[in-house]
Nucleic acid binder design. Structure first.
Lengths: 155, 155
DNA sequence: GGGCAGTACATGCAAATGCATGTAAATCGG
DNA sequence: CCGATTTACATGCATTTGCATGTACTGCCC
């Protein structure tokens, strides 16, 4: 029997090339976004925390849930939140149902800053993405990246 | 005349949601990749430099070209390359045609390490991406991310 | 060709990050 | 219900990163 290895290796290659392209696109877009004036006062990761909190329905979010969203180690996130707290942008509170946990929410000032930066940020994104892809292509890219993310093993 | 603002704002929203989804997918995949055993000896950014050099046809690459590929400041890349050089993985050489420039290439040891890590890395990628998307979906995602990257303003 | 702005890379230094570990609380096994 | 393991977060410390700046070279304009 011939090994017939080609299909398997080409499937692996396709996956690798797809990831590589996704990753390079992310790097290229992110580089342009973070060098813009929207982030003169706040690092991208810091903004991302404010943004995630602003999307949270209850207003409060556990630190470990936040950590899933951000590409930072647990300890780095802990200190990033320290900084945001010292700047008066977020508030900490011990989790009521779990003595180990910490809940976070935006302060009024934090919410205001998020909205202000968010407006600029969204505009910057649109200036990069909208000319590059048609609306239909954007919807498809959105669908595929959501599917990819949703299909990942939980940990 | 009615302002008819809705189409514009929804185009902006679509672009923002598309980018958000792409970014989160990248974070989720990257988190899983970088915590794997492939990167026990080398940070992802360091591997990325070796990888980029391994793809370079001439074998030599300018530092500033390398910097376009990697999400690092110029100074951080300079020092990252210092570290790789001290570990004997890359070699520096003054650019012959430009007295300010520096050319880089992999050493034999660097090329070997890149191949070794690359094998594991590609396997890890395939284990995450292949089950998540069909081959056709991967090809489409590859196409869209390539198009996005290619359409960005040069700087 | 001589000055002058711009580019490529290196380096001092403060800030951010990750690893290892510490502490406290929850959960599990008996 | 008690000890052992696991989970959530914080912290000491070494490493990495970015900003500002320095140095050397290039290219431009006159």
């Amino acid at each position: 029997m011939a090994p017939r290895k080609a299909p398997a290796t080409s499937a692996v290659r396709l996956a690798a090339e797809t990831w590589e392209s996704l990753f390079r696109a992310q790097v290229a877009v992110m580089r342009r976004l973070q060098s813009g004036p929207a982030f003169r006062n706040l690092a991208v990761n810091e903004y991302d925390v404010l943004f995630t909190l602003s999307r949270c329905p209850s207003g409060w979010l556990r630190l470990n849930e936040l950590n899933d969203n951000v590409l930072l180690s647990q300890s780095s996130l802990s200190r990033l939140v320290d900084r945001l707290e010292k700047r008066g942008l977020v508030a900490r509170m011990p989790a009521p149902d779990d003595g180990r946990g910490v809940l976070l929410k935006l302060t009024e000032e934090g919410a205001a800053l998020q909205k202000e930066i968010g407006r600029e940020h969204v505009r910057d994104i649109a200036e990069l993405v909208a000319p590059a892809l048609t609306a239909a292509e954007q919807r498809e890219l959105l669908r595929l990246t959501e599917k990819l993310r949703a299909s990942l093993p939980s940990r």
